[in-house]
């Protein structure tokens, strides 16, 4: 049995839009993150990835189901309160729109310092300024940005400030929602190497939400595919890319753009009018560690229907 650091069980999250209309952003989803792994989460735009990330971090209260971190059942209010300090420092999130969610009235140094202040923590590197300098460098930013406001930074610079802020807390679990999509490929490569380093040397566990499948293939240990609020497939990265089973996974993999103009221009995209997939059924272990959402009739196979990786 693998050591599991965090996860969700039968999680459902609904947004009530008006009296009549509800959006079920997450629909009975179970997922584990193993200690020391980088778990990629990929999926349709609007499939609930960011909602899942927010539920994992207790930013949203799930409509149903459970969220846990180590042995803390953090979807329970009393338990959350009891362990609030640990939960707020040992788990960090990089928001999808972190570039625009930084407080515009705070300088970069204050943004990085904020979690230290709120949690009354003395930085490892002595002063907040040293800590902030270190983290900026770690994420490939120039020190001179310390005293700038977010409005004075480029999109990619802001993105890295958000990463620096999350890393400064030295979390055990990092939930990273599209952390690298706003930076150029050479800095993407640096950040991906950094995430790998954090996992290898510091034992970070990372949930890495991304659309860039080439990066996911390179970085992640396992990949979960989401579609319409459900998990449709989950497998080790190599296995998933070599042997995708769900039609949505197949479609995704067939659309990865290739950095080669002649090949890319000639490529025909599949017919998108037919991109509706059945989401009924249960996650079933097809081969060791490879889970697939299987259609209604197989779903009575209770034994294989656990969504635990």
């Amino acid at each position: 049995m693998q050591d599991i650091i965090a996860g969700v069980r039968n999680l459902t999250h609904e947004f009530q839009l008006n009296k009549k209309l509800k959006i079920r952003a997450i629909d009975g989803l179970s997922l584990d993150i193993r200690r020391g792994e980088i778990l990629g989460v990929v999926g349709e735009s609007g499939s609930g990835k960011s909602t899942l990330a927010r539920c994992m971090m207790n930013i949203y209260r799930p409509t149903e189901g459970e969220v846990f971190f180590k042995n803390i059942k953090c979807s329970d209010r009393a338990e959350y309160k009891k362990h609030a300090f640990e939960l707020q420092t040992k788990r960090q999130i990089i928001f999808q729109d972190s570039a625009s969610s930084l407080n515009p009235r705070m300088r970069v140094i204050d943004i990085i310092a904020e979690p230290f202040r709120i949690n009354h923590i003395v930085p490892i590197r002595g002063s907040i300024e040293n800590e902030a300098r270190f983290q900026l460098k770690y994420t490939g930013l120039d020190e001179e940005l310390l005293y700038k406001y977010p409005g004075e930074l480029s999109g990619g610079q802001r993105q890295r400030v958000a990463i620096a802020r999350a890393l400064a807390m030295e979390p055990e679990l990092l939930v990273a929602d599209e952390p690298i999509s706003a930076v150029d490929v050479s800095i993407q490569a640096q950040l991906v190497n950094l995430f790998k380093h954090l996992r290898n040397e510091h034992g970070f566990s990372i949930m890495f939400i991304a659309h860039d499948l080439a990066m996911v293939e390179f970085l992640c240990d396992r990949v979960a595919i989401m579609y319409r609020g459900r998990l449709v497939e989950l497998a080790e990265t190599k296995e998933l890319f070599a042997n995708p089973l769900h039609p949505y996974t197949k479609l995704l993999l067939s659309c990865i753009p290739i950095p080669d103009p002649r090949a890319e221009r000639e490529r025909k995209h599949p017919d998108f009018d037919e991109t509706e997939f059945d989401t009924s059924g249960c996650l079933t272990e097809i081969s060791e560690g490879h889970l697939l959402l299987c259609g209604g009739e197989k779903s009575n196979n209770k034994k294989g229907s656990l969504a635990i990786g």
């Binding site: 999926g43 349709e44 735009s45 995704l252 659309c255 753009p257 995209h269 998108f272």
Partner: peptide, 17 residues
């Protein structure tokens, strides 16, 4: 300016076309 960074690859392909 970066019109498709937040899109999954299938929708990105659609939008580009």
């Amino acid at each position: 300016d970066e019109p498709t960074t937040a899109l999954d690859v299938t929708i990105q392909a659609q939008i580009l076309d």
